[in-house]
Design a protein around this nucleic acid. Structure first.
Lengths: 212, 212
DNA sequence: GTGTTTGCGTTCAGGCCTGAATGTTCTTGG
DNA sequence: CCAAGAACATTCAGGCCTGAACGCAAACAC
């Protein structure tokens, strides 16, 4: 048997593999901690505990708490967009496509990860270092979202009002998702979303581009 | 001259007056601290410093940090609604009334106090005690806002879709105001708001109640 | 196998915050 | 003027968190 560790059964891992695994575990633990405990209680001790590692391991990979959080932001953004893009592939064609597309975005915000992001967001207001990281991520996410919208609805995208409409839809969804913060079950939102979605569909289809 | 202290020139104040003044100073300092430093850095020490008082005075009036924050929430809500209601009195009549009304709400959210409220909001997600207080305030604010909308636009209020429309408008505004968190100058929002407002006006006036 | 590097665990010092206990000053009523 | 009590100040103990120092063991180079 070749002793190549890259394809090993797990018993024998190369240094790089070990390192990557612990990094991943730390980042996952950080996100879980942000979701469940909030930013304030996302301490180095707690994250290490949750990851099943020591604080030493933590400090080895991320020398400060801020470094950990910065990496976690990237991790979060990546996961989020991947989920969104993956779900977008299954979007049906036909007259329900627009409503389903809005549902898609809605679901991506009615999601624990958004709560974690929101927590980071508000903290960033009074933390310059955090703000730097989040601004970069925000720009990228906005760009990707708009691009996705254009790709999914090319006929609507031709209209000059498309971009403001998409931005408004996202703002509405964000505002609604904000309510979930205090209503963990989300009962309140699930009631408001259908009517909001209907209104957004009305706006987006206001002047159909002829193709129907 | 009668030495009645209730109308005193300030040199001689009754105990109740002194007490009320320090309470007020502490609450104001708390809000200022929430706005400028955020919830995490709103510590008893810092609030007392900012109010020009000692920590002893603080603990005399509010025995715990949570008690202070709870009182500050009420203070914030009261200020906010008062500003909103006062501004509503000057709303012009005529065809610009609706757009001006939306601007009114918009301005009440594009406001440092909202940032402070947002901070409390996100913290409340993982703090049961805080959540209790905020839920009560949220219910009251929502009720007052809807009531105000009905009073200002009685003709629109007759339609069954009025309530969902108002809720959507508020959600959109909240979502937009969220962006201000990372963009202190608010440049980005001031660009997006006009088009959002136009769309909301379109929706609200979709089926005019005949009176125009 | 041996030595070096890398990943990781343990312990410690310093700092900030909270809440409680204990003084000190000022108001009020007699 | 004096005593009682409220308002306010000061100090202290306990707890949690961060970041750094030090030590061990596993993995790669030879």
């Amino acid at each position: 048997m070749a002793a190549t560790p890259t394809s090993g059964n797990g018993a024998r891992r190369t240094q790089a593999q070990r390192s990557a695994a612990t990094r991943e575990a730390l980042l996952d633990a950080t996100l879980a901690c942000l979701v469940e405990d909030g930013y304030a209680r996302t301490t180095t001790t707690r994250v290490a505990e949750r990851a099943g590692l020591s604080r030493g391991a933590h400090l080895h990979h991320f020398r400060t708490r801020n470094a950990l959080v910065a990496a976690a932001i990237g991790h979060l953004a990546e996961r989020w967009t991947q989920e969104l893009l993956a779900a977008a592939e299954d979007l049906p064609t036909g007259r329900e496509r627009l409503a389903e597309g809005l549902d898609l975005v809605w679901r991506s915000y009615a999601n624990p990860l958004f709560q974690a992001a929101l927590d980071l967001w508000t903290q960033a207001r009074t933390d310059a270092e955090l703000r730097e990281h989040l601004l970069a991520v925000e720009r990228q996410l906005d760009r990707q979202t708009l691009e996705l919208a254009r790709r999914l609805f090319p006929d609507l995208a031709a209209r000059p009002t498309f971009e403001p409409l998409v931005e408004m839809a996202i703002s509405t969804i964000r505002g609604l998702a904000l309510l979930d913060t205090l209503h963990p079950d989300g009962a309140r939102n699930r009631k408001q979303w259908p009517s909001c979605r209907a209104m957004l569909v009305t706006l987006l289809q206001a002047e159909p581009a002829g193709d129907d």
